[in-house]
Design a protein around this nucleic acid. Structure first.
Length: 464
RNA sequence: UCCUGGGUAGCUCAGUCGGUAGAGCGGGUGACUGUUAAUCACCUUGUCGGGGGUUCGAAUCCCUCCCCAGGAGCCA
C-alpha cells in the first residue's frame, strides 16, 4: 500500500518519484486532447489544490474519470512527478482513481465559480468546501489552539464553567430557558409556570457568561480562564451578533485593572501573531480577496501599543472634535457606536482601550473607583469591529458589593454563593471576556459574523 | 425591535412609459489545447418571494405578509 499524504504535507515535502495516495474532493476537471485530463483535488488540509494527471491508461478513465465534476470525492494513487507546466511545482500522475462519492452537477449547490457569502449561508453544511469558508474554518481552529497556548504558557488553568445555569439575572441580556416540561401542557401556579416541577426544580437557562463561576475558581487557583459557548436571546440582527457564540474569559486573582488590560493586549497580540506565523496561506487569501488593507492593519496592531484613554477623556475628546454626531455626547451616558468608531478608526486608527466608565451604565460586579462616580471597567475596541473585549476589576469589598446590588434591586439570596467569595478570603481580582468570532472577523477581514462560525444561530435561523 | 435597500433562470444580475422576460456564469454536446477562473461554437433553464387589489393587461402600480442584506439599539 502506498503511503497516504495530506496535500499540505505533500506540497511541502515534494517526494518526487514516490508512489502515494491522496484522498479528497474534485474542484475542477479540464480535459485535454490526447485522452488525458487535469483534476484539481482539494482535501481541506490547505488552500492549495493538487493537480492530478489522469490518462486513458487508467481502467475507468472513460467510464468514470471523464464524468468527474466539482464536488465528487475520490481516492487517487499515483506517482509524484515534477510538473512540466507553470502553476505548480509537483503533480500526481494517477494510476488508479476510485470514486467514493458522486456529486450530480445538476443539483450540487456549489459551482465552479465564486458564490456570494449570502448564498453560501443557505448551504452551511457544504460551504466549508469552498476556498474562503475552508480558510475560515482552518483559521478558527488555529485561533482556538492559540488561545489555549497563550493561557497555558502563563500558567492559567482552564475551567469548564456550566452551560446550564440557574442564576436568573447576570445582567448580560436575555436568556434561553431550558426545560423538559411539556410545552403544550405547562404546569401552572396562580397563572404562572410552575418551574418547581421542571427538571432542576427551578427555572434554568443557557449561560450568558461564565464570569461569576470563573471568579469562584480564580479565588482558589489564582489564574483561570473559560472558553465555551455563550447564549443570548437578544433579537439583534447585525453582522457582529450571534445568539450562540464562543467567548474566552480569563479571571485573575490579585490583579488590578491595569494588569487586566496588559493581559488583554498581550492576548490579542498573541492571537494575531499566531495567525501571521502559522496561517500564511489562508491569511494571504484574506489579504488578497477579503480586505485590502488587512496585512497593514494586523501589522500595525501588532507593532503599536494599544492606545489607552479613560471614559472621561473620551467624552472630552468627542466634545472638542468638530465631527458631527447623530447622538449628543455627554458625560454619564454610554458611548454610541458612532462615537466609538470615530475614536477608534479616525482618531487612533487602531485598537483602543477605554476605561473607568460611569458606574450607572455598568453592572453591579465592577469595582467602584475612589471618585465614587466611575468603576474600574475597560472595553477594547477594534477598528471595523467595535467592542472585542469587555472587562473589569471586580468589586472585592463585601459591603460595597452588597450596597451596589441592593441599589440595583438584585436578590441577595440568589447570589449568596457569589457573596461568599467576598465573605471568605476575598482578594482583588480582574477579568474580561473576548468574543471569539469577533477576533476571527478582525484577523480575516470577514464582514459578517455569520461567516466565521460553522453553523450560525441568529433570530429566526438555526439550520444545520 | 426600528430605519434603509433588496427578493427575476442552478448562481450573479439587467429589465425603459404597465403590453406575460434577458445577459454573463453554471450545466449539456461538440471542437481545440500541458491545461490551471482554460478557450470557441451550439443547446439548456423561470410559480418574476407568498397572498390580495387596481387594470383589457402587472416583474413593473397599491395593500399585506414572509425572507435577506446594510445601519441602529443591545452587547462580545
Amino acid at each position: 500500500m502506498p503511503p497516504s499524504y495530506r496535500i499540505n504535507n505533500l506540497l511541502a515535502e515534494k517526494p518526487l518519484d514516490t508512489e502515494i495516495t491522496v484522498t479528497g474532493w474534485v474542484r475542477t476537471r479540464r480535459d485535454a486532447k490526447g485522452n488525458f485530463s487535469f483534476l484539481e483535488i482539494n482535501d481541506g488540509s490547505c488552500l492549495a489544490n493538487l493537480q492530478v494527471i489522469a490518462d486513458d491508461s487508467i481502467p475507468n478513465y472513460d467510464t468514470e474519470v471523464l464524468r468527474l465534476t466539482t464536488g465528487c470525492a475520490a481516492s487517487i494513487t499515483g506517482m509524484v512527478i515534477a510538473s512540466p507546466a507553470k502553476g505548480q511545482e509537483i503533480e500526481l500522475k494517477a494510476t488508479t482513481i476510485t470514486v467514493t462519492g458522486w456529486a450530480d452537477p445538476k443539483s450540487y449547490p456549489l459551482q465552479k465559480k465564486r458564490h456570494s457569502f449570502e448564498y453560501l449561508r443557505t448551504v452551511p453544511h457544504l460551504r466549508p468546501r469552498t476556498n474562503s469558508l475552508g480558510a475560515v474554518a482552518r483559521l478558527r481552529g488555529a485561533l482556538s489552539f492559540a488561545c489555549h497556548e497563550f493561557f497555558n504558557q502563563r500558567g492559567f488553568v482552564q475551567i469548564h464553567t456550566p452551560v446550564i445555569t440557574t442564576s436568573d439575572c447576570e445582567g448580560a441580556g436575555e436568556m434561553f430557558t431550558t426545560t423538559n416540561l411539556d410545552l403544550d401542557n405547562l404546569p401552572t401556579t396562580a397563572g404562572k409556570v410552575d418551574y418547581q416541577q421542571d427538571f432542576f426544580g427551578r427555572r434554568a437557562a443557557l449561560t450568558v457568561s461564565g464570569q461569576l463561576e470563573a471568579e469562584a475558581y480564580a479565588l482558589a487557583l489564582g489564574n483561570v480562564y473559560t472558553f465555551g459557548p455563550t447564549f443570548r436571546a437578544e433579537n439583534s440582527n447585525t453582522s457582529r451578533h450571534l445568539a450562540e457564540f464562543w467567548m474566552i474569559e480569563p479571571e485573575m486573582a490579585f490583579c488590578d485593572l491595569n494588569g487586566n488590560i496588559d493581559l488583554a493586549e498581550a492576548f490579542i497580540k498573541h492571537l494575531l501573531q499566531y495567525v501571521v506565523d502559522n496561517c500564511q496561506e489562508d491569511f494571504d487569501l484574506f489579504c488578497r480577496f477579503i480586505e485590502k488593507n488587512l496585512a497593514t492593519k494586523i501589522h500595525n496592531a501588532l507593532t503599536t501599543p494599544f492606545a489607552r484613554i479613560t471614559y472621561t477623556e473620551a467624552v472630552e475628546q468627542l466634545r472638542k472634535s468638530k465631527h458631527k454626531f447623530t447622538f449628543p455626547v455627554q458625560w454619564g451616558t454610554d458611548l454610541q457606536s458612532e462615537h466609538e468608531r470615530y475614536l477608534c478608526e479616525d482618531v487612533v486608527g487602531g485598537p483602543l482601550v477605554v476605561s473607568d466608565y460611569p458606574k450607572e451604565i455598568k453592572p453591579f460586579y465592577m469595582r467602584a473607583n475612589d471618585d465614587n462616580k466611575t468603576v474600574a471597567a475597560m472595553d477594547i475596541l477594534l477598528p471595523g469591529i467595535g467592542e472585542i473585549i469587555g472587562g473589569s476589576q471586580r468589586e472585592e469589598r463585601l459591603d460595597l458589593l452588597v450596597a451596589r446590588m441592593t441599589e440595583q434591586g438584585l436578590d441577595l439570596d440568589e447570589y449568596s454563593w457569589y457573596l461568599d467569595l467576598r465573605r471568605y478570603g476575598s482578594a482583588p481580582h480582574s477579568g474580561f471576556g473576548l468574543g471569539f468570532e469577533r477576533i476571527i472577523q478582525f484577523v480575516s477581514g470577514m464582514g459578517n459574523i455569520r461567516d466565521v462560525i460553522p453553523f450560525p444561530r441568529t433570530p429566526g435561523s438555526a439550520t444545520s
